[in-house]
Design a protein around this nucleic acid. Sequence first.
DNA 1: ACTTCTTCTCATG
DNA 2: CATGAGAAGAAGT
Length: 167
Amino acid sequence: MKKEALIFTRYEAPFGSLVVLGTAEKICFAGFSEAGHDAAIALLRNEFPEASISQGEAKWHEKAQTFLSENRTLPRVLFRFSGTPFQCAVWKALLDIPRGKTATYAEVARRIGHPRAVRAVGTAIGANPISLFIPCHRVIRSDATIGGYRWGTRRKKAILAWESLNP
DNA sequence: ACTTCTTCTCATG
DNA sequence: CATGAGAAGAAGT
């Protein structure tokens, strides 16, 4: 199988160092890594063992930067979803959450037509490879408490705070 | 009234 | 088969 060429860029955000990975055209992964440059690469290689990863500036670089500085939403066509149909449905639903707002897991479940599959939704959101850009951090529990977060609940709070303080 | 516990639910590994 | 980034209702304090 031919190795896919993927490009990554690191960004500094108020809530941590972000690593964004994708093809020249589309973003397929985003995560946090404070542990340093090498650790970031290791993380990416671990997520995509079959890809050849190098640093560089892809087409989405400018938009990603705009997103971080102006806190805007990215068009979903910019993302490359890889996952089960269920996961894709969940992630698309997340993109419809207005910036600065939050939704509950139950609401997301209802939106995709499985009102009772709240738990499954939680798992699917947790598996989201493009954190931050797909606003998984905007999803909270029904009683308004912060649920879990793949990158730590502390970070989840930080992001939410940043979003509300940044018009 | 508040806290804990029990049960329901469903995609995933 | 067991588990999870949940939720609603019951039971106990």
